[in-house]
């Protein structure tokens, strides 16, 4: 019968409305631009990092960069081994996470599963206030308060040390973990908790055996955020951990991190396109690669444990 169909003219009441379509397209375009601006900025940063690092790696071989154990790009006798800075970054981050992960997770469990409504309404904003404290304040808190305190226990501790910077950084990160992990735990449906209680489980058993596994994806997201924060943190380590690139994983020593190096060099006046100037970008590229790696790991883990309730 198909061949019997005649082409009908379209009634104006059902015709496509040009004005409405155009308006929709314009709105869609504006929204897309807003979304793309963030993507564009990221790509621009990566491009500049790569471009400036390229100049750096024309002078310095990748082998020297990754295997050298001395980082003195600004000295007469220049060495370009990034390892001391990576060691400093990893050590301070490790100390910070050793504090922030357990404390943040326990705080999240408490706030989500144990605290009364009233306690939570007071505690959570106070905890989140910590996020608003400028990091430079944390830096001097580490240098002028925590380090002298630690020196009472370890009299040999130098004035600049990674332990103090890492501990304070850890405290600084606690609210990030607590807040994001708590949101994830609170998003676990009440029916799942009721199922656990109905089996005769205690509050603690329910929190640990049912709610925490159910919220794994969000909790991992909180940890990843914390790692990125610790690796990228600048002020606390620049102020309290020292400026000397030292290849050591001993937190009781002072050592510069990648970020501390960048801040230190950026404050001086280096000629554009000099090797010292370019070294900032090479260091920045390594930092970027580190956080990207952690984020990718986090992404994979999150996908594996995504909520299924």
């Amino acid at each position: 019968m198909l061949n019997n169909l005649t082409e009908l003219s379209i009634s104006p009441r059902l015709a496509k409305n040009i004005r409405r379509n155009v308006k929709e397209r314009v709105i869609e375009f504006i929204l897309m631009m807003a979304a793309l601006s963030a993507v564009f900025t990221t790509f621009a940063i990566v491009a500049i990092l790569l471009y400036e690092s390229f100049g750096f790696f024309e002078t310095v071989s990748l082998v020297e960069f990754f295997t050298g154990t001395v980082w003195t790009p600004l000295f007469e006798d220049a060495h370009y081994g990034i390892m001391p800075l990576i060691a400093g970054t990893l050590t301070t981050s490790f100390v910070a996470l050793a504090v922030a992960v357990p404390v943040g997770t326990i705080a999240a469990i408490y706030l989500s599963e144990f605290a009364s409504h009233k306690t939570r309404e007071i505690t959570k904003p106070v905890l989140e206030l910590l996020v608003g404290v400028p990091t430079i304040a944390f830096g001097y808190f580490a240098l002028l308060f925590v380090t002298p305190l630690l020196q009472i226990i370890y009299p040999d501790l130098p004035g600049f040390n990674m332990l103090s910077a890492g501990l304070v950084m850890g405290v600084m990160i606690v609210p990030y973990i607590a807040s994001v992990a708590e949101d994830a735990m609170r998003a676990v449906p009440m029916s799942m908790r009721e199922g656990s209680y109905a089996m005769g489980a205690t509050r603690f058993q329910t929190a640990l055996r049912v709610v925490t596994p159910a919220a794994t994806s969000g909790i991992v997201a909180a940890y990843i955020l914390a790692v990125s924060r610790a690796v990228g943190e600048t002020m606390v380590v620049a102020v309290a951990a020292g400026q000397q690139p030292t290849l050591t994983f001993d937190p009781t020593e002072g050592a510069a991190t990648i970020t501390a190096y960048i801040v230190q060099v950026a404050m001086g006046d280096l000629p554009h396109a000099s090797i010292g100037y370019q070294s900032i970008f090479a260091a920045g590229l390594v930092l970027f690669a580190m956080t990207l790696t952690f984020n990718l790991i986090g992404h994979v883990v999150r996908k594996k444990y995504r909520e299924q309730y």
């Binding site: 029916s191 799942m192 009721e194 199922g195 159910a214």
Partner: peptide, 13 residues
């Protein structure tokens, strides 16, 4: 006294 709920609520296990 055990209970079965309206919507199945298995644990993430």
């Amino acid at each position: 006294i055990s209970m079965v709920f309206q919507k199945p609520n298995p644990f993430p296990k």
